[in-house]
Design a protein around this nucleic acid. Structure first.
Lengths: 205, 205
DNA sequence: ATATCCAGACCGACCACAAGGTCGGGTACT
DNA sequence: AGTACCCGACCTTGTGGTCGGTCTGGATAT
């Protein structure tokens, strides 16, 4: 049970990280199903058995990769979301631009979120929950805009949040296929229009 | 060579269609990699060997499924695109609503487009080409709006098209996870804002 | 009308192989 | 001595695909 946790972690932690990085890359390239433990292990400089010593199953490895990125994502989201109000929308743009420097990360989620639509996929629950969490946070941050009077009180923040997330997810997919696609510009275009449209003013129609 | 083609096509054509339908469903549920020929054959009411008699390989089956949907897609796109100008944007909404009645089809493409990001995926070239085609068509249809004076001439139609496609792709993904997500409303929200924003008026800033 | 023929449809047995995972052991550090 | 690390051999299962064969339904010849 209470084995000494704090002993020689360094070595194990290193290879564990190497595996995590390799897994991240290969999952991003080929998806969960397309990537094999053998490939991942090879890229990490370990045998498959060595890999399985640190992660008991492929599922477990996936979860570990997901959890790690979860933390990173949260850190990145704090910025834009803490702005509150309408600035959130423009703040998300920065996130997109930031993402465009991290091909693997973008690809990882774009690929996995689609692959995980299968209910029996080991990432299904995670991805479903992630969408809910994202939406809720966005709604929360945007609702500050209503309190401040920046955003029309009759705005449907649920729908708006869904649309914003959709835009980000979708543009990333195109970007993976063709890096010439300007994610920032596309988001900007919509973001400006939305800010304009959602601004305080008499409800249209 | 010129074997009699018009003889007993009916039977073969029937099971071929059954296979195509089953493949469509399973590819949509589990992706190309996740679906097995055995499963597909079973759902189609044939053995795997029987399936392979009609389609020589899994790749070939995928291509067949894709090509069939290609024709359907084209038919659905004619409507919105023939409107030309700014009406295209509002016309796309109808397409989305229409799609919301066809779960399999939506899921098929959402899943496959992400899975096909791998360059070695048999659907890669198809999906890449599909994006280009979609964008080009959209740009073409929207440019009519500029000629008509409905859309600002300085509007970047490439970027606008990318954004619209992204929105559709992204919202479909969320919808797969949670059918409560209102695709029409989300698209509407953005579409209205965009039409407003892209309308003829002096260039901002 | 009957026998013949043949292409297409379909199946069962089989194969090579890659997948994830188990197990027992070896090594090194403490 | 014990524990964490890691490997090699092995096992099972599922995979896409091949091959040989059976059956059937019509076209053809007589």
């Amino acid at each position: 049970m209470g084995a000494k946790l704090g002993q020689n972690n360094v070595k194990g932690e290193q290879t564990k990280n190497a595996i995590l990085t390799a897994a991240e890359q290969l999952f991003a390239e080929s998806g969960y199903r397309g990537a094999s433990l053998a490939n991942i292990a090879e890229r990490a400089g370990v045998t498959q058995s060595g890999l399985l010593h640190h992660f008991n199953s492929k599922d477990e490895l996936l979860v570990a990769v997901l959890e790690q990125h979860n933390r990173d994502d949260d850190a990145l989201l704090i910025g834009p979301l803490s702005l509150g109000g309408a600035d959130v929308i423009t703040g998300l743009r920065e996130l997109i631009v930031q993402n465009s420097k991290n091909r693997v990360s973008v690809r990882l989620f774009a690929v996995l979120v689609a692959e995980s639509t299968s209910v029996d996929h080991p990432g299904h629950d995670y991805m479903k929950a992630r969408y809910d969490r994202l939406r809720n946070r966005l709604v929360g941050a945007l609702s500050i805009g209503i309190q401040r009077g920046e955003i029309r009180p009759d705005a449907d923040l649920e729908v708006l949040s869904s649309a914003l997330i959709a835009l980000m997810d979708g543009i990333q997919l195109q970007w993976i296929y063709n890096a010439q696609v300007d994610m920032g510009a596309a988001f900007d275009l919509v973001a400006r229009a939305l800010v304009e449209s959602m601004a305080m003013k008499p409800a249209a129609a």
